[in-house]
Amino acid sequence: MTDTNPVLAAIARTRRGTAEARAAAAAHRIAQPPQATRLRAVAEELAKGRSLADVFAEIAERAGATVHRAASPEAAAETLRAIWRDKALSGPIVRADDPLCAACDDLAEAHTGAARGDEPVGISRAAAGIAETGSLVLVAAAETPTTANFLPETHVVVLAEADVVAAFEDFWPTLRARNVLPRTVNLITGPSRTGDIELTLQIGVHGPRSLHIVVYGDGR
């Protein structure tokens, strides 16, 4: 590629060593990145006896999400219905193709697949939660389409406590282990926001105006 590509050739002329040596250096660096600097604040909270899910919940709320805790998958389904009632939500719903996300199916019209744009509510399933930033990890798949994360005004996301990890680096191995990298991985931290008019914080520009996270345990 270097031979025929004028941009790469222009770069190569200024670099030290041979092209082969640079390729080897880059390959080595990619395969073995240096030890990351992790945030000590997370480790300190864990040392106090708090769980990853506790830390995740606190930091996600700081970013404007509302976190609901449930002891078991069954309780999570009940929590979804309670959110529906308390927030007086109405359908249609675009939801993940996942039994837990079907909890409100008898309350409104619900469908799986891509969002059309006319659904006020999206119910999604997170692949992971990242405690250091309170971020949800939503991975594109047939069951969990990306459009459902952005088009509805209210986004409700179900997350298992067991899927909460401490830092970004703890999720990457899961991603690397896949045979096929998904087209899109969304790390979502709170609702949509802007400061573009007079640097005044406003919630709900193009994406969801509210983000509810239901973090559930295994019931033991």
Partner: peptide
Amino acid sequence: TGQHASSYTTLSVGTRREGEVDG
């Protein structure tokens, strides 16, 4: 912006994979 994380950090590559329904 003085945020510990922005609302949306997205990693994406290429075209929708086989079986995916959007993108």
